[in-house]
Amino acid sequence: GAPPLPPYSAGGREVTMKKGDILTLLNSTNKDWWKVEVNDRQGFVPAAYVKKLDSGTGKELVLALYDYQEK
């Protein structure tokens, strides 16, 4: 199953993602919540729920390892 959710501390809205989604990583300075862009929406997802990909394009991409439903 998915890892436990860290307390929400990102101070911005969250976004929903599905397992297998490829998201653009915008900011990973917060260790628990990373800012991503998905379907032209920006928001935060739990860092433990995604994995960085080596895209080779200069853009940082992450793979959704679990479904996440915004609150």
Score class of each variant (00 low, 15 high):
Gly1His: 11
Ala2Ile: 12
Ala2Thr: 13
Pro3Ser: 06
Leu5Arg: 10
Pro6Met: 02
Pro6Cys: 04
Pro6Ala: 02
Pro7Gly: 08
Pro7Ile: 11
Tyr8Leu: 11
Tyr8Ala: 09
Tyr8Ile: 13
Ser9Met: 07
Ala10Lys: 04
Ala10Val: 10
Ala10Cys: 10
Gly11Glu: 12
Gly11Phe: 05
Gly12Lys: 06
Arg13His: 15
Glu14His: 14
Glu14Lys: 09
Glu14Leu: 09
Val15Ser: 04
Val15Gln: 05
Val15Gly: 03
Val15Ile: 15
Val15Thr: 07
Thr16Cys: 07
Thr16Ile: 06
Thr16Leu: 07
Met17Tyr: 03
Met17Asn: 01
Met17Val: 07
Met17Gly: 00
Lys18Glu: 06
Lys18Gln: 09
Lys18Gly: 05
Lys18Arg: 09
Lys18Pro: 01
Lys19Met: 06
Lys19Gln: 09
Lys19Ile: 06
Gly20Ala: 02
Gly20Asp: 05
Gly20Leu: 02
Asp21Arg: 02
Asp21Ala: 06
Ile22Asp: 01
Ile22Thr: 05
Leu23Gly: 13
Leu23Gln: 01
Leu23Cys: 08
Thr24Lys: 12
Thr24Trp: 12
Thr24Asp: 05
Thr24Leu: 12
Leu26Val: 11
Leu26Gln: 03
Asn27Met: 08
Asn27Lys: 06
Asn27Asp: 15
Asn27Arg: 06
Asn27Trp: 06
Asn27Gln: 13
Asn27Val: 09
Ser28Met: 11
Thr29Lys: 11
Thr29Ser: 14
Asn30Phe: 05
Asn30Met: 07
Lys31Trp: 06
Lys31Met: 11
Lys31Ser: 12
Lys31Gly: 09
Lys31Pro: 13
Trp33Gly: 00
Trp33Asn: 00
Trp34Pro: 00
Trp34Cys: 03
Lys35Gln: 15
Lys35Met: 15
Lys35Val: 11
Val36Pro: 00
Val36Cys: 05
Glu37Gly: 07
Val38Cys: 07
Asn39Val: 11
Asn39Ser: 14
Asn39Ile: 08
Asn39Glu: 14
Asp40Val: 07
Asp40Gln: 12
Asp40Leu: 11
Arg41Gln: 14
Arg41Pro: 00
Gln42Val: 14
Gln42Asn: 08
Gln42Lys: 12
Gln42Pro: 05
Gln42Ser: 12
Gly43Arg: 03
Gly43Asn: 02
Gly43Val: 06
Phe44Asn: 04
Val45Phe: 00
Pro46His: 01
Pro46Ser: 01
Pro46Phe: 02
Ala47Asn: 02
Ala47Arg: 07
Ala47Ile: 02
Ala47Trp: 01
Ala48Asp: 08
Ala48Cys: 06
Tyr49Phe: 15
Tyr49Asn: 02
Tyr49Thr: 03
Val50Met: 05
Val50Asp: 01
Val50Arg: 00
Val50Thr: 04
Val50Trp: 00
Lys51Arg: 14
Lys51Tyr: 05
Lys51His: 11
Lys51Trp: 06
Lys52Val: 13
Lys52Ile: 11
Lys52Trp: 06
Leu53Asp: 03
Leu53Lys: 04
Leu53Ser: 03
Asp54Met: 13
Asp54Phe: 09
Asp54Cys: 07
Gly56Ile: 14
Gly56Thr: 14
Thr57Met: 15
Thr57Phe: 15
Thr57Leu: 15
Gly58Cys: 05
Gly58His: 05
Gly58Asp: 12
Glu60Met: 13
Leu61Glu: 11
Leu61Ser: 09
Val62Phe: 05
Val62Met: 04
Val62Ile: 07
Ala64Pro: 00
Ala64His: 00
Leu65Val: 06
Leu65Thr: 04
Leu65Asn: 03
Tyr66Gly: 02
Tyr66Arg: 05
Tyr66Pro: 00
Tyr66Ala: 05
Asp67Met: 02
Tyr68Pro: 00
Tyr68His: 05
Gln69Met: 15
Gln69Arg: 09
Glu70Trp: 07
Glu70Val: 12
Glu70Leu: 06
